[in-house]
């Protein structure tokens, strides 16, 4: 009897604890990703394990083009249908969100100068949970206050115009950029055209010149004008 009361009390106690104590908040951490946290520790301590200092290009994960990694890939078509640009929590309703890392879905967004070179983490600009959609009125990323709330943390004196710099620059070579950032697309291809044009003309030109001069004897010590070759 005693034992029964004892075990019931303990069980009720555990249930009460589970109900009353606050939920463990994985995503509310300042840095959600273990990878990022590790990167930060490495940068701040300068201490690297031997196995970590392989050259950058030896990436352990091999991606298959067009195939999304993960056990529960978020449907791209569903994302297109659902409008997520004005929500207080832009990640609302995404399954297993707490257990996921930003770059699981936002792969391209990790490949910009701010992330790669300045070692910024996503949350240093986008903030902690919940991350509001950029067009939500109170979002710190809303263009009406983005420059003051986000950019000026590092770029002192940033203006709204300054904040229109596209941090997650699209690949300027891609056809999709023609629609999203036409000026960048055309500037890129015009410059590439100039560069390719120069080398298409001058590489064969210079190579042929070098070969031809091998056949032409270097004429010397003559007083009258002469042609080579």
């Amino acid at each position: 009897m005693n034992r029964f009361i004892c075990s019931t009390t303990s069980a009720l106690g555990i249930i009460a604890a589970l109900l009353l104590f606050p939920e463990i908040t994985y995503s509310a951490e300042e840095v959600a990703s273990a990878l990022r946290r590790y990167k930060e520790r490495e940068v701040s301590t300068g201490y690297y394990e031997e196995y970590e200092v392989l050259p950058r290009h030896q990436r352990p994960m091999v991606g298959v083009p067009g195939v999304q990694r993960g056990i529960f890939p978020y449907s791209p078509s569903a994302a297109r249908v659902r409008i997520r640009t004005r929500l207080a929590d832009s990640h609302q309703g995404i399954k297993f969100y707490k257990r996921r890392r930003c770059e699981d879905c936002h792969v391209k967004e990790t490949k910009d100068i701010h992330t790669i070179r300045a070692n910024l983490t996503c949350r240093q600009c986008h903030g902690g949970e919940p991350i509001a959609s950029i067009e939500h009125y109170y979002s710190s990323m809303n263009p009406i206050r983005r420059h003051a709330a986000v950019c000026s943390k590092c770029h002192e004196g940033a203006s709204a115009s300054f904040a229109s710099y596209v941090v997650h620059t699209p690949n300027p070579a891609m056809a999709a950029t023609k629609k999203t950032f036409p000026v960048l697309f055309y500037a890129f291809w015009i410059m590439v055209g100039v560069a390719v044009g120069t080398f298409v003309v001058f590489l064969p030109h210079t190579a042929l010149w070098g070969i031809r001069e091998l056949f032409a004897a270097k004429e010397k010590t003559t007083s009258e004008p002469k042609q080579h070759g």
């Binding site: 300054f162 620059t169 000026v183 960048l184």
Partner: peptide
């Protein structure tokens, strides 16, 4: 970015 929109810097960079 006072003389032009800030996204001009993306173009200038490339």
């Amino acid at each position: 970015s006072r003389l032009m929109p800030g996204w001009g810097l993306n173009v200038a960079f490339w």
